[in-house]
Simulated assay, not measured.
Amino acid sequence: LRREEVAQLAFISTEYYTRLEQARGPRPSREVLAGLTRALRLSDAERAHLHYLAGAPPAPPPGPSREVRPSILDLLRRLPHAAALVLSAAYEVIAHNDLAAALLEDFSALPRHERNFLRRTFLDSSAGERQWYSRSGMEIFGRTAARHLRAAAARYPDDPEVAALVKDLLAGSAEFARLWAAYDMSVEPAPHKTFRHPLIGPITLNCDVLDIADRDQRVVIYTADPGSPAEGALRLLSVIGTQRLDVPG
């Protein structure tokens, strides 16, 4: 972009923008910095650095990012033999591939408010029927989720959706309220997870998590060991997809 274009997009004069570039202007306000961030399409890290250079610490981001990078979406498509999904900092499922939909459910078919992994696990009335996790797996997942959500609530104190999620979970799930009250901040890795699929039965899969630091997102990838029963189960799920095989009568 040319100087004139950046200035126009940031709603400041070209002269003032030129003086800022040359370190001759007065210290820019937060509003000016916000305009420059939008105009230059800066990432969160670049935004923070811009504020640091200007001597004005940035305000907390308004809420968890829900925009998934195209390269991450392409990664999901390139993993046909793995179930993969992208979670926001508040556990909203913001992208997933076909095998993840077959293993868990098709989150894209749900209203956005219901695409939250924690809501589906702890608050949805049909969660007992899905039984994504074994009892021990549910305990580990719950402790990890409570720790992550507590951290997200601290990072996004002004986000009404994060606040509402915490409030709803504490009011609607005694199990989550117990885990939240325990204040367990220890890190408990879970390299394997056992899912209870209504058609396939128990499936134990490898679980790997990739952090996308600049978006505060996580890519969760479930894979099966070569030649294992789980590999055959995933292969069958890739054929079945999200269809139901209920037998009438």
Rank of each mutant, 00 (worst) to 15 (best):
D74L: 14
F11E: 15
R24G: 04
A181P: 02
E46T: 14
L169Y: 02
F11P: 02
S173Y: 05
L9S: 09
D225L: 15
E231Q: 15
S238H: 06
L236R: 03
V93Q: 02
F117V: 07
D214L: 10
P191R: 00
L40V: 06
P248H: 12
H192A: 04
H192M: 03
V86I: 08
P248I: 12
R119A: 04
R130H: 07
C207R: 15
A233M: 13
I140V: 13
R150D: 12
S43M: 06
T18H: 08
D158T: 14
A7H: 11
P160Q: 04
S228Y: 10
L205S: 00
S65M: 11
L205M: 08
P62L: 14
D225C: 07
P226G: 11
E139W: 05
D214W: 07
T14L: 12
A82K: 12
E5M: 13
A48H: 11
A164K: 08
N97K: 04
A90G: 05
L165Y: 01
A54G: 04
A95N: 05
D225Q: 15
R120F: 00
R77A: 13
A84S: 08
P60D: 07
V93F: 04
A100P: 06
V32H: 09
E15Y: 06
S108N: 12
K193Q: 00
P229A: 11
R24F: 02
Y16I: 11
T204P: 01
F107G: 13
W180K: 00
L1Q: 05
L118G: 00
A89R: 05
V32A: 13
G142S: 12
I212C: 06
I240E: 03
I72Q: 00
T37H: 07
A182Q: 07
K193P: 00
H96M: 15
R147H: 14
Y222T: 06
G128K: 10
S126R: 13
T223Q: 10
A83S: 08
A54T: 06
V209A: 14
I72R: 00
I212T: 04
R66S: 03
Y17W: 14
T18M: 07
A174S: 09
E129I: 12
P28T: 09
L75D: 10
G142H: 01
E129A: 15
P26L: 02
F195D: 04
L53Y: 03
T14I: 15
P80L: 02
R218F: 08
S71L: 08
A7S: 10
R66C: 04
P111K: 03
R24D: 01
L199F: 03
L9Q: 13
R218C: 12
A190P: 00
A224Y: 15
P198G: 02
D184F: 06
L199R: 01
R143D: 03
L50R: 03
P226W: 14
L165V: 01
S108Q: 15
A181R: 10
N97C: 10
L1G: 02
R78G: 01
G249V: 11
D44L: 09
L104V: 11
A154N: 07
T204K: 02
G249I: 12
S43I: 09
R178T: 14
R196M: 04
A127W: 02
R41A: 14
P28A: 11
A101S: 15
A230H: 09
Q131S: 15
D106Q: 03
S13H: 04
V220I: 15
T37R: 05
R115G: 09
